[in-house]
Every structure is written in structure tokens, then in C-alpha cells.
């Protein structure tokens, strides 16, 4: 590991632990303001959507709405399966199968 990499991994480890641990550690001593609690609810859907959407719609960097875009087709299909079934394992297995099948087809 280079020293640059050590700084990188250490920095990532510290910020990640600092979003996971303090709330658990201090919960009996502090009360978070309601506006923070209200906003926090939207962090998972916002962050996950911000990761998912470009991966589906711009897999190569540019907007790709063609049927040959397996990320988009399989992503939409997976979203529908997840929304209907609420079954994560089924979504992952079927979604991967659709994705690999679609890529093979095109």
C-alpha cells in the first residue's frame, strides 16, 4: 500500500464509522431535532436513487434509452418485481437473470 492509499482507506473508514456509531452511542443522552429526523428519512431513497438512476440510464456515460441497454431494461423489470413482490432474493435472482439474458440476446 502506498501512503496515499493508507490516507484514503483511513479517511473512508473514519467518516463511515462516524455516520454509523455516534447516534447509537449517544442515543440515551441526546435528542435529535425533529427537522433532522424528518430529513433523515429521505436519505436512503435519495442516495440509492442517485446511485441507481445513472447506472441504469447512462451506463456508458451518455443517456442511453435504447432497448439494447440491458441496465435499463433489467433495472425497470427488477423495480417492478421488487415493488410487486417485496421479495429481495427473488428480485436479485430474477433481475440478474434478466440482465444477463438480455445482454446475451443483444
Amino acid at each position: 500500500m502506498t501512503s496515499q492509499e493508507i490516507v484514503l482507506v483511513a479517511g473512508m473508514a473514519v467518516v463511515t464509522f462516524l455516520v454509523r456509531w455516534p447516534v447509537l452511542a449517544l442515543v440515551s443522552r441526546i435528542t435529535l431535532p425533529q427537522v433532522v429526523l424528518d430529513g433523515m428519512k429521505f436519505i436512503p431513497p435519495a442516495v440509492l436513487a442517485a446511485i441507481i438512476a445513472p447506472a441504469m440510464f447512462t451506463p456508458t456515460g451518455a443517456l442511453d434509452l435504447r432497448l439494447s441497454n440491458a441496465y435499463l431494461v433489467a433495472g425497470l423489470a427488477s423495480g417492478f418485481i421488487a415493488w410487486r413482490t417485496r421479495n429481495l432474493l427473488a428480485t436479485i435472482v430474477l433481475g440478474m437473470a434478466i440482465f444477463l439474458g438480455w445482454r446475451w440476446l443483444w
Binding site: 436512503p44 446511485i51 433489467a74 433495472g75 427488477s78 423495480g79 417492478f80 428480485t91 433481475g95 440478474m96
Partner: peptide
């Protein structure tokens, strides 16, 4: 795509 489909499975429902 495994990462994407896992996140889709978490957020879509």
C-alpha cells in the same frame, strides 16, 4: 449489475 439490482430491491418496495 448485482449492486444495482440489490439497491433496486431495497428501494422500490
Amino acid at each position: 449489475f448485482a449492486l444495482i439490482v440489490t439497491f433496486i430491491g431495497m428501494v422500490a418496495p
